[in-house]
Structure formats: C-alpha cells, structure tokens
Design a protein around this nucleic acid. Structure first.
Lengths: 193, 193
DNA sequence: CCTCAAACATGACCTAGATCATAAATTGGT
DNA sequence: ACCAATTTATGATCTAGGTCATGTTTGAGG
C-alpha cells in the first residue's frame, strides 16, 4: 500500500499551497487525504484563539480517517505547513481499500494505535504533570525521530502549542532543563546526544 | 464477532475480583482482553500520585490492543472496577482474528477511531480550556450515553480524574454550571434533560 | 553584508485553580 | 434503622504559570 499505487488507480491529486486550509472544524468528512508531498498540521483552536497542535503529518502519511470512519464532523483545522500535494480519496474508495487490501487494513490499525498511544501519553502529561515535566516528555518524544548530533527543528512556540503552555513558559522551562543537564542546547536549538 | 464466538473457539476465561490489577505500566503486552462481564478502568498515575482516567471499558468491549499492536510497554494501569470475567487472547490469536475476520478488523478500526476522537477532544480541553469549560464538555459527553431523566452515576472525584482537575474545583465548577443553567442537578446528581 | 521579520529572552505583575482544613450530607452494609 | 465510610461542601490561603511589556538575537532574502 503506497502512494504510487493510489495514483495508478487514477485517484485525484490536489495541490494545496502553504497555509491553505484543507478542512475546518464542523465540516462533515467526505475524504481521506494521503500526502504525496509536503506537510500538514492538524490544530484545534479555543474560543480565546489559543492553538493546540493535535498532530503533524508528513509525506507518505495520511489523515482525516477517524472522523470519516465514525461519521462525525471534524474537530480540528488541517492546514498545509508547506506547499503540498494530496491524494484525495473518497469514502467509498477508502472503504474498498480497507476491505480489499488486507495489508493496508493492518497498517491502518497500527497507525491508529500509534496515534492513540501518543495522545494517551500527552493526556497524562496535560492532566497531571507540570510544565518542565511536560516539556521534557515531548522533547524526548521528538528526539526519538532524529539522529544523534542533529537538532530539533521546532520553535518554542510550537512546543508551547503541543504542550498547552505559553511561549514564555517554554523558554524558561527549556533553560531550566538545560541547566539541570536534562537536555542539551546548542545555538538555541535542542540537540540529541 | 462477539464474545460467545471467542469462548466457542476455546479461548481462556479469567476471573478478576474488584480492584484486581490486570496490567501495570512498564509491562510488555502479551494479550488483548475482551470483557465477558464486569467493568475495567484504565488509569495513569503521576509521580505525585495523581490519577488520570484514560478510559473505562464495559461488558462486550476490549482493551489493551494499542500497546500490543505497536509492541510498546503499557503506559497505564488497568484495574477491575467490579468483579470481572475477561477473555484473554494472546498475540497470535488476536492477529489471526484481524486477518481472518474482516468484520472484526473493520470494527476494530472504528473502535480505535472513536477512542482517538475522544482523546483529541480531551487534549484540546486540557491544553486550552479552563475548568468550567472542561467540565461541561465531559459532562455533555457522558450524558450522551444515557436517557433523558436519568442521572450520571459518576462521582465528582471521577470527574476530577477525567479532567485533570481536583475534587474541590469540580464541586465548585458544577455548582457554577448549575447556577448558569447549563446543567441540571437533582439530589447532588447530574441529570439529563 | 544589510535589513527586517521572526524567534528568543527576561522582568514585574496577576489570577485560576491547587492545597489545606474542617464539616455536613449520602450511601451501603449488617 | 444505625454506623462507618465515602462523597459533597465551603472557606482561607498559596503558587505555578499566565499575562503584559519591553528588549535582544537570529537568520533568510535582496
């Protein structure tokens, strides 16, 4: 189950420029989106305008299934982080995919499990832990994706939007974590060691 | 795909008395648990001992798959809320179930999607909204499961453990919501109207 | 190598909700 | 119906982190 496979099947490709909104809260879901190229962020926005990053999806990944599968309006905005090419798969085709491609079905189950795992972890953090602990947890989580010596390409604002904190708190928190030796900062960037 | 079907297949049934621990954080997952009877709560506990209710599972439901599927140690405790009979399905049998029973596989995908939806909603609440808003959100969510005139069989402590708040805050918050007419209280219990 | 916007940084408050203490009201088991 | 345990209630503090204000540093594009 890969993107090329979907293209071969004649599914439509759609272009979204950076910052384009793919869907908004309240909309009834009709498609699942596979990312051929680019990157997308899924965010919820509170009444007071505070943003929370629910997830980031990159080339090769897909998004939008849960709402479609349980037939409930979207909760989040999905916005292109960069110019992106998405394969738009409608409901029937997506269901066919699940039915006829056992590998895809298994892969989907694993993907949903992984996301659930991440959300459970974050819920525990937001519900029970204080700023520094929260910060250290996402930082370590994000460091898992990169190699030793590399640094996190994430702004403090983004960390704030992933943890429910405010930038100032993230800035102060990161300094404390660095002082305690729990993370390593180089030129302002968090590096994996 | 139902419980009887699993029993017919000769899968083992295990009894857990009220308050028995089914699994703990850090354990490597080996089984998926189907609830024949009883009820189970999944909770995470912070270093300072604060509990957070990740989910409650009832007769006919199952739990423990995500960690098993992605092969990561459990994050949570799972504890019997009442005396419970569980069908313990090992990894291979569970994978067979997914492969050979297309209906089950679809059902699982829907179940995971539903849980993901709930967790996304709660994450947004915990990250961005203040006490009263959070409270109103889970209350309305919980009211969705019962009939008009019935009341929520949930203590304020449990609401606290689902929202990351403290009992006192929940008690005060509920009073405010009732005063504003956003919920109805009868004999201390929240009723659906 | 400039320039300007974005990203960091830091100090001085302020407030929602935690914490602590104490007591009244329900509930369930015998 | 009674008693112990649990749950609800309320007032008095305290504090982590939000908010606001005002810099400084960094880095991408001309």
């Amino acid at each position: 189950m890969n993107i090329q496979h979907l293209i071969d099947k004649g599914l439509k490709l759609k272009n979204y420029p950076k910052d384009a909104v793919i869907y908004e809260p309240g909309m009834q879901p009709r498609f699942v989106y596979f990312i051929k190229s680019g990157e997308v962020r899924m965010i919820t926005v509170s009444d007071e305008g505070k943003e929370f990053i629910q997830g980031v999806f990159k080339t090769g990944q897909y998004f939008g299934e849960p709402a479609l599968l349980i037939d409930r309006p979207y909760l989040a905005f999905t916005i292109a982080n960069k110019d992106s090419q998405l394969i738009v798969v409608n409901k029937e085709d997506f269901f066919k995919l699940i039915k006829n491609e056992p590998d895809f079905s298994m892969e989907l189950i694993r993907t949903l499990s992984k996301r659930l795992f991440y959300k459970s972890m974050m819920l525990e953090e937001l519900a029970s832990e204080k700023a520094d602990h929260r910060l250290l947890t996402i930082i370590n989580y994000l460091l898992g994706d990169i190699n030793v010596g590399e640094n996190l390409k994430v702004t403090r604002q983004e960390l704030a939007d992933m943890t429910g904190l405010r930038v100032e708190t993230v800035i102060r928190g990161i300094k404390i974590l660095a002082e305690k030796g729990l993370i390593k900062i180089l030129k302002g960037k968090i590096v994996k060691l």
